[in-house]
Amino acid sequence: MDNPFVIAFGLIMQADPALMQIISLSLRVTLSAVVIACAIGLPLGAALALSRFRGKAMVIVIFNALMGLPPVVAGLVVYLLLSRSGPLGGLALLFTPTAMILAQTVLILPIIVSLTRSVVEDLWAEYQEHLLSLGAGRLQAVPTLLWDGRVSLLTGVLAGFGRASAEVGAVLIVGGNIAGHTRTMTTAITLETARGNLGLAVALGLVLLSLTLALNAAAWGAGQWAKGRLG
């Protein structure tokens, strides 16, 4: 096996266009999925924390359980939905980046919802009468709690990002690993492993790891900054 560190370094230094395209697609897919999952999951999780209804415990348990959904299953569900023979076949989305975004959104939404619920529930216990005293109703409390829980919520968002960027099962099924079109870091790693190019596969893994590291470092820094500034 060739030295993967040397290969990884070479790939990055040359800014290999195929690699750059793969990195760009991976980031685009995963970040989009995270943004969409947050847009849905943050308010949904907060609403779940503040609402009282019959069957709430069951909904919570279901979301918690879905955090462990195997990526392949999420991929398969989205595949069956988007397939030409499926209910959304007319959209012609299978084997496109949009399909991959959708699958990853399905995958990380439960993480965002569950973590948001837990963070907001704790914060609500602390804030409830004070917010009521200051004149905020439940609905107005939602943005307040989300904003004040931002440092903890960031952890959940990062966990979602980690799960999405690391998974291969879902994007492989709904994306098809088409060269130059739906090939991401993880599907490329799978392909190179299958070709026996283990050095290149590990090198790609190193690139993925560095990206994840850089993003987490940035998020951690932002969290520390927010903690220092906003208490």
């Binding site: 685009r28 970040l31 989009s32 943004v35 969409i36 496109t96 980046p97 949009t98 975004i101 079109h181």
Partner: peptide, 10 residues
């Protein structure tokens, strides 16, 4: 990000 995600494929 949303714009980027919505970019039409080739």
């Amino acid at each position: 990000l949303t714009l980027w995600a919505a970019l039409p494929a080739t």
